[in-house]
Simulated assay, not measured.
Amino acid sequence: MQQKTTPPPPLPKELLQGGRWPEGPVQDQGAVARARRRRRLAANARERRRMLGLNIAFDRLRSVIPNLESDKKLSKSETLQMAQIYITTLSDLLREGKRDPDAACAEEDAGAEGAPGLEVTGVMNFWGRTSGSK
């Protein structure tokens, strides 16, 4: 004689999370909310550390690029634009020195006042702000 088997009872809704089996024991809603808040606070702290590191890097970059208006702090966008111009200008100067090494030696022998285009006022005027800046 065969025994009748009854189907298993349906799973309680609390055990299912989004149609999936839970990974651990069933937790109350308060514990879930506390865990979510802890994760959010940890993510916020990581983001604050990331932004602090980024701001420190921008401050270091600002300290090495020439700036006419040294009393006004450059924005991040202005800092990147100035750095790009500065790097391009230095690269151009290096390329010019490689093309004409005799002229570069003559400029060094003449001193700073005898080096055309490298006077401090000329360099400082070059770094003035563009018309699009504040």
Rank of each mutant, 00 (worst) to 15 (best):
A45N: 08
I85D: 09
R20N: 11
R95I: 08
S75Q: 08
G132S: 08
L16P: 03
K76G: 10
E113A: 03
L74G: 03
R60I: 00
R20A: 09
P10C: 00
T6G: 05
V64L: 13
S63F: 07
S131E: 14
S91W: 08
K134C: 04
P22R: 14
N67M: 08
D102Y: 00
P116D: 06
R34H: 12
A106K: 11
T6R: 06
P116Y: 00
V26F: 01
P7G: 05
Q3C: 04
N67C: 14
P12W: 01
P12E: 13
A104M: 09
G18L: 07
A110S: 10
S63M: 12
K134F: 01
T5W: 15
F58R: 01
L16N: 06
E96D: 15
D28M: 03
L80C: 02
N125P: 02
Q81V: 03
L41T: 05
A115G: 03
E119V: 00
R20Q: 07
L41R: 13
Q2H: 04
G132V: 10
V26T: 10
F126M: 13
V64N: 06
T88G: 08
T6H: 11
C105K: 15
G122E: 15
M1H: 10
V120C: 13
S133E: 11
S77D: 06
R40S: 07
R37K: 12
K76E: 13
K98S: 01
G128W: 07
K76L: 05
P8S: 09
P101Q: 04
E69K: 09
A106T: 04
A103S: 02
L68N: 12
L16S: 03
A106C: 12
A42D: 09
T121A: 05
G30Q: 03
G132C: 00
K76F: 11
